[in-house]
Design a protein around this nucleic acid. Structure first.
Lengths: 226, 226
DNA sequence: CGAGTAACTTACTGCGAGTAAGTTCTTCTC
DNA sequence: GAGAAGAACTTACTCGCAGTAAGTTACTCG
């Protein structure tokens, strides 16, 4: 659907424009790259990484496959380019919410809410992220494994910083324990996001954030000094 | 390694056995199925789902590809068959540990320890499980998504049961909150398992389990009544 | 207008999943 | 021990898709 294969005649198109629409051919490189990226983001979001072929994307944009290879190098390259934009947005949104908060308790809650709200507002984004990206990260897994590990690492560092903020002033905690806690929280929020995206009427972001906060807050004070 | 391509000559092998070894050809179906399954488990564990071709498996067993298709239907079918065995073992191990424990607090801790220990003891298993299986489960993700969702669902139900056990007698909690808590714990343990498998000197299962227990235990008492 | 280059295409290769149509080996009956 | 019946197994393909080589068309700037 969505008007595939356009009205551009494949061969003699130079005589075009007789119907009025200036058949956009030969756009500027930057513009084409953006166009391809947007189409790819949409199609990957709909059909997943495996389910999308480069020919699909090429057809959607109305361009031939080698052009995409010239601009993005490989299917992985194209996918990573999609991921880069999306994760930057997500990370920025959550970081902003955390940094805007007053104390540590508030920061944690605000971060959770921002996370779940962002994913509610950008379901397509979320599809791209989790498909082989955010989650598929076994040893030889998907192509985006390394890239999404970066995002995750950034989140984990953010969480670890919050945990440290929460310690009594001047105290330090066992680094292992901080890491374990940060990994746990990261894992919990990812799993909750997936869960919410797959059930018909998920609890509100606030509800989930509050429950998670209740679950974790007290335990965060039990970190031992090394 | 491990003596690839065997000594069976591809063409005229009926005149074989001149060297002594009774070149095992034409085994019983059950035996062949097991043989294929074991090879597949190993290769999937080493190279991942994507990185393994059916020809690889066929060559490893010393058999032709269509035979594998006859027995397992498809690459997905073969992968799922591997998964089925592994997850059954994992689920059983953890369940046993939980059920053998005295009270709820002990059950939670014992479950964590059993989980991390099992994965330490079966790294190959773990590779197969996380590669596109345990984690890759976006909308149109890997083939094993549905299968591993089942395992996860089983764990989540186990966790939810433990949480309920922990409530004051006669009390009931908001089902949404129980679900949120169970999803969180499942996500945390999965992420921790991946993290541990990817760093050089991970903390012991007991250490991780203890930290997780500390993090969660107090919060488990904050569940509201609906 | 013509040279130079950026934008783009046609037409392939190669690999890997899956299949059609057999070909041997084994056993079971007479 | 024939020889039929069926299970175990193979050769030789098709088809879809990632990736590429080599060329062609349109814009731009002297």
């Amino acid at each position: 659907m969505t008007s595939t294969t356009h009205n551009t005649p494949p061969t003699t198109e130079s005589a075009a424009a007789e119907n009025g629409g200036p058949v956009k051919r030969r756009r500027d490189r930057r513009a084409r790259e953006r166009e391809i990226l947007e189409a790819a983001e949409r199609i990957f979001g709909e059909r997943g990484y495996q389910g999308t072929s480069m020919d699909d994307v090429a057809a959607e944009v109305g361009v031939s496959k080698p052009l995409i290879y010239q601009y993005y190098g490989s299917k992985d390259g194209l996918f990573l380019a999609c991921l880069a934009r999306l994760r930057a947005q997500l990370l920025e949104t959550v970081s902003d919410a955390v940094l805007a908060a007053g104390d540590a308790e508030d920061a944690l809650y605000a971060g959770f809410v921002a996370w779940f709200e962002f994913l509610d507002d950008h379901p397509q984004t979320w599809s791209v992220l989790i498909d082989e990206g955010m989650l598929g990260m076994g040893p030889a897994a998907g192509p985006a494994a390394a890239a999404t590990d970066e995002v995750r690492a950034a989140f984990i560092e953010l969480i670890a910083a919050m945990v440290r903020m929460n310690l009594p002033p001047g105290r330090t905690a066992d680094p292992d324990e901080i890491e374990i806690v940060a990994q746990s929280i990261s894992g919990a929020t990812e799993r909750l996001a997936i869960w919410r995206s797959r059930i018909p009427a998920p609890p509100t972001p606030e509800k989930v954030a509050q429950t998670l906060q209740n679950l974790l807050w007290q335990g965060l004070h039990t970190l031992r000094t090394p």
